[in-house]
Design a protein around this nucleic acid. Structure first.
Length: 623
RNA sequence: GCGCCUGUAGCUCAGUUGGAUAGAGCAACGGACUUCUAAUCCGUAGGUCGGGGGUUCGAAUCCCUCCAGGCGCGCCA
């Protein structure tokens, strides 16, 4: 052996260590910190590669020469490689498949149902804040991202040994509920509320904004209602609590359909009683201060300029959230005072406001209370906020604020782009919105169309349609880089072929079907298993993919990007489908080949099922 | 106006953290089911990686600049 490879870790890691060790042994210890083992592009005809350019610079030697030196001096016998060659400054390693196969198989057999897992998170707790819908608004596709990305991260981190706490921070407090209470007080319709709670509440919310344009007294009433709510007024509390109940019941239905669950569902309201104390302490410590409201006209004209310059979109400055900020918020006199944390000296343009001039709280106030509670209750090493990218500035403010307040915990904003419609941003207020439940129903129906001719019971068909439809929707989201916006496209969200959730599920059912028909359920028991028999291109390609699984999971966790896993599983499925078409398993030419391929199929099935489960996607056994 | 993000095939997107010849899916065209499930597979075609400059052995990836789009910018969440 060239050096002592780390005994821990998966096969691929050991093989990489050996490749590195070989180069270090020949080129000297100095090489150790200047080389990295990479996957060469297909077509090179190698399995691993080490570029020598960085080392060449340090040693002032020609990389081609060094590569040749390694290729000449090395004796690959007894290593995991049967061929080590030099090419254009790279050292290329070709797996000795009789050796590596064995290693990959042993790896899998030894770890059993834990293949791919790790202990890197053991002893560490992570709190994930995800989904967090607002009650009184129907669940739109806009809420899909936080929900599925958060759930995937939750699963991934648990698999890596972390203790994970999922907290659905329901938006059930704030000025908007003042608006809904005021609206219900005037136009409330008991029947509509019973029939479809969140849609009825949405109607009230929309109507409120329509009428508030002509009638500013509505805004005043809304502020008063929220102040009453925050003060614990009976009538306000009773109504609010009813709205909350009804909405949560609807959300539950969607979470069931999606297969999503939480350890805690503590809404913003849960922290109501701690708010005064937080603000007081922030004042006492000198971090927060009283302040007057700056000149509104200046900022507003600036905004209009910006909107005017943008030109093309008339919707700008006029939609959803931003619409609430202008003109009609006249319930408070300009000379009144707010409590805020100034952040200008930290190069953050806006301060963080903790208390409005009417004495009520804001989002940030409740977030502070929430974080304090989480720290006290769960002692996390890390808190992840799976929240839209449009709140980036808010989170830089918020994180600076908690640092100033002396709350010591690592907080990370895990942002994602928004789902837009081709004609622009979604707006619940304008009714330009797609409800998640409608999308899921449609996707399930389409999946049902395909499965209806199968020779299966009606119940099986229904269950398959549900699993496939939901997978299509989830995968459409999870397979994309979360930081980018998604232009909503019915066709893509419900895709059942190509790069889609159902494609992966289908690959799994093919594997599962072979296993079922083989009658074998324990790969370790296969009598004629001989990994070295697997030398066909389709077979080794499949092994290569399977061997990558553990590190893909780690990368996904490191960047909080579930799409790494999605893309990997797609690639694995493609390779498996090629194998499936070209290599007969149950009718393989020899018993050795049959058992060996069977083991390969079992490994593939495991990785597909496990990988999909990390994404929060369930697999049917047949489809 | 200032700040953050994005720009890759007709469309929708990947791209192993700066590596070798930039990859998929959809759409188009041509092929493969008496076969372990054709929700599949094989093939053809499709590219100035937004434009320009720079950094170096090497750039879709890093820096600058311009263009285009998205998001945000003191009492919404």
């Amino acid at each position: 052996m060239y050096n002592a490879p780390t005994m821990k870790g998966y096969a691929l890691e050991k093989i990489r260590d050996e490749a590195r060790g070989i180069v270090v042994a020949i080129l000297g210890q100095e090489a150790a910190e200047h080389i990295r083992v990479e996957f060469p592009p297909p077509g090179i005809g190698a399995d691993l590669a080490i570029p020598l350019f960085p080392l060449a610079k340090v040693l002032r030697r020609n990389p081609n020469e060094m590569a040749s030196e390694v290729a000449e001096k090395v004796d690959p016998s007894g290593s995991y490689f049967d061929q080590i060659s030099a090419a254009k400054g790279f050292v290329n390693f070709h797996f000795d498949w009789t050796q590596c196969n064995k290693l990959f198989f042993e790896d899998f057999l030894a770890s059993g149902d834990a293949y791919g897992s790790a202990e890197i998170g053991s002893g560490k707790t992570v709190v994930i804040d995800y989904s967090a819908p607002n009650i009184a608004k129907p669940f739109s596709v806009g809420h899909l991202r936080s929900t599925v990305i958060g759930q995937a991260l939750y699963n991934i981190l648990i698999f890596l040994g972390y203790t994970v706490i999922g907290d659905n921070h329901i938006g059930d407090w704030g000025t908007q509920f003042g608006k809904i209470l005021a609206a219900y007080d005037r136009w409330g319709d008991e029947k509509a509320l019973e029939e479809s709670p969140t849609r009825a509440l949405l109607d009230l919310y929309v109507r409120f904004h329509e009428e508030a344009v002509a009638d500013p007294s509505l805004e005043v009433a809304a502020r008063e209602w929220f102040a009453k709510l925050e003060a614990g007024d009976d009538k306000a509390t009773q109504l609010w609590s009813r709205f909350r109940e009804l909405s949560l019941r609807e959300f539950e239905r969607i979470y069931d359909l999606l297969g999503v669950s939480f350890d805690h569902t503590l809404g913003e309201s849960f922290y109501n009683e701690r708010l005064k104390d937080i603000v007081q302490r922030a004042l006492d410590s000198g971090v927060a201060e009283w302040s007057t409201v700056p000149d509104k006209d200046a900022s507003r004209s600036g905004e209009k300029d910006a909107a005017g310059k943008g030109g093309t979109s008339e919707e700008k400055g006029n939609v959803d959230a931003s619409g609430g900020r202008d003109s009609t918020e006249t319930g408070v006199g300009d000379d009144e005072k707010v409590i805020l944390i100034p952040l200008a000296k930290y190069d953050i343009s806006a301060p963080l406001i903790l208390q409005k001039s009417d004495g009520t709280s804001l989002y940030a106030t409740r977030e502070l209370a929430t974080l304090e509670h989480r720290v006290a209750e769960w002692k996390p090493h890390e808190v992840l906020y799976v929240v839209g990218a449009e709140q980036s500035l808010y989170f830089t403010q918020f994180f600076k604020a908690i640092e100033l307040l002396g709350i010591k915990v690592k907080c990370v904003h895990v942002p994602f782009g928004m789902i837009r419609l081709p004609e622009g941003r979604m707006s619940t207020r304008k009714g330009r919105v797609i409800f998640l439940e409608d999308l899921l129903a449609e996707a399930i129906e389409r999946a049902g169309e395909i499965v209806k001719d199968r020779d299966l019971s009606d119940e099986e068909k229904q269950e398959i349609a549900r699993l496939v439809g939901v997978a299509a929707v989830k995968y459409a989201d999870l397979s994309q880089d979360r930081t980018k916006d998604i232009v909503f496209d019915w066709k893509k969200m419900m895709a059942l072929e190509g790069n889609s959730g159902p494609y992966l599920q289908y690959a799994y059912t093919r594997a599962a079907s072979i296993m079922r028909k083989s009658g074998e359920d324990d790969v370790g028991e296969l009598e004629n298993l001989d990994p070295s028999a697997l030398t066909e291109e389709e077979e080794t390609a499949l092994l290569r993919e399977i061997a990558r699984f553990p590190e893909v999971i780690k990368q996904a966790a490191g960047d909080y990007k579930p799409n790494y896993i999605a893309n990997y599983l797609f690639s694995l499925s493609q390779v498996f489908n090629r194998f499936y078409v070209n290599c007969a398993v149950l009718k393989a030419e020899t018993p050795v080949l049959k058992d060996s391929r069977l083991a390969l199929v079992a490994m593939t099935a495991y990785v597909l099922r496990k990988g999909l489960s990390l994404l929060g996607i369930d697999c049917p056994e047949k489809m």
